[in-house]
Write a protein that binds this DNA or RNA. Structure first.
Lengths: 221, 221
DNA sequence: TTCTGTGAAAGAATTCACAGCG
DNA sequence: CGCTGTGAATTCTTTCACAGAA
């Protein structure tokens, strides 16, 4: 491992590897080579090795990687070896779906608070979470130990939601609203932007017949 | 415009530009320069110009780009100047949220069919769409002219959903399930993968204190 | 003049190819 | 041997810098 810059896309690929390793583990496979893993992810084996090499030496020459061992290492790297506390802002259809989803899968994260600005949502309960007004955010974030804010409000309210989350003290934001948020550099933001993906898809379908251009694309993007 | 390879990320940026141009248009601005637009998107002006140059010459030297005009051109390029017909597979919490969302925004797409394998979902109505069993897919896709399939089922059923959509004749798939789907090259797939983003976010938060590595990242990724 | 469009240069990411370990 | 880990080579992206149009 060298002291190098790590491209964010390499981190995304790590998350893909983790997923595939889980599948392999479930199938009872104990060892996997970079060629095999690359094959499953449909990328180049050198890419797999290089991505892992950013973080350490996890393989055994002549053999490959122990599935369980590598999975554990990647989980540690991604910080998925512990439980993260989420706070939801916006209990609409999407927010509701996210709360329900988190309840049904055991995956290293759980919602511990939920907020909405609409009076008719306040007091609703999902499991043992009660929907609170935005004004309670600062207090609740502290009380419940919310580390990551999840924004599922209309685009016009997303920046306000982000500002409130930041000043309440969250360290990261997962943003489902189709806007690019402003925030201090100390708070990390990841966007889950369905409409951008849709734009790319429609472009491909539109261009598919008249193949004037060849398009290049990436894993996990 | 040259006959060149277009990176997929440039197409994503085009979708970002479209969004920002809409905001500018709403604010009544008529002209925008590459410097201004780049500023809004927090990228390099040459990048904006180069991205646009992949597709044509839309600007006026010494002036900039007409906001409305450029927005229209980008919409044409992305194929967002017409209505796309979607078919949903999986009417769970997320699927429901997507149906509801599409009803509330007017944005160049609409769901014209919905499918679920669970008998208790079949017959449910959202607006004028009735949830149908998977077996009706082939017939309904033809009848309603579904072009894009949206997968919102559990990961273990996603490949089956994709196979059925493909053989029913859809041309593109927007996949919300956390799996990489196999499909013929003639069918485009875009993944909206919230859990990969979460992995990246947790990584950043975990690494934030011990800033051993500097991470590079991209717009719209 | 101002700002676009674009070759050329610089910078990143990916892939090759092989030394070296098990 | 077979496979990892990694410099070197290649390819892809971004940025610079300026010619040329309005």
């Amino acid at each position: 491992m060298k002291f190098e810059k790590i491209p964010s896309i390499a981190v995304t690929r790590l998350a893909v590897y983790a997923r595939k390793l889980e599948h392999l583990d479930q199938k009872g496979e104990e060892v996997v080579s970079s060629v095999r893993l690359a094959d499953i992810c449909r990328i180049n084996p050198a890419q797999v090795r290089k991505d892992l090499a950013y973080f350490g030496q996890f393989g055994i020459r002549g053999l490959g990687y122990y599935v369980k061992g590598l999975l554990l290492e990647i989980s540690k790297i991604l910080g998925l070896d512990r439980e993260w506390h989420f706070g939801l802002v916006g209990v609409g259809n999407l927010g509701w779906a996210l709360l329900k989803h988190a309840q049904s899968v055991k995956k290293g994260y759980s919602f511990v608070a939920a907020f909405d600005k609409r009076p008719n949502r306040i007091g609703l309960k999902v499991g043992d979470i009660r929907v609170e007004p935005l004004e309670s955010m600062k207090c609740m974030v502290k009380e419940k130990g919310v580390e990551i804010g999840v924004i599922a409000v209309k685009p016009e309210w997303a920046q306000d939601a982000a500002d409130r989350l930041v000043s309440a003290g969250v360290r990261g934001i997962l943003n489902f609203a189709p806007v690019e948020l402003n925030s201090p550099a100390s708070v990390s933001i990841e966007n889950v932007d369905f409409s951008l993906k849709l734009g790319v898809l429609c472009y491909r379908l539109t261009t598919a017949k008249s193949k004037r251009h060849h398009i290049t694309s990436k894993l996990g993007a």
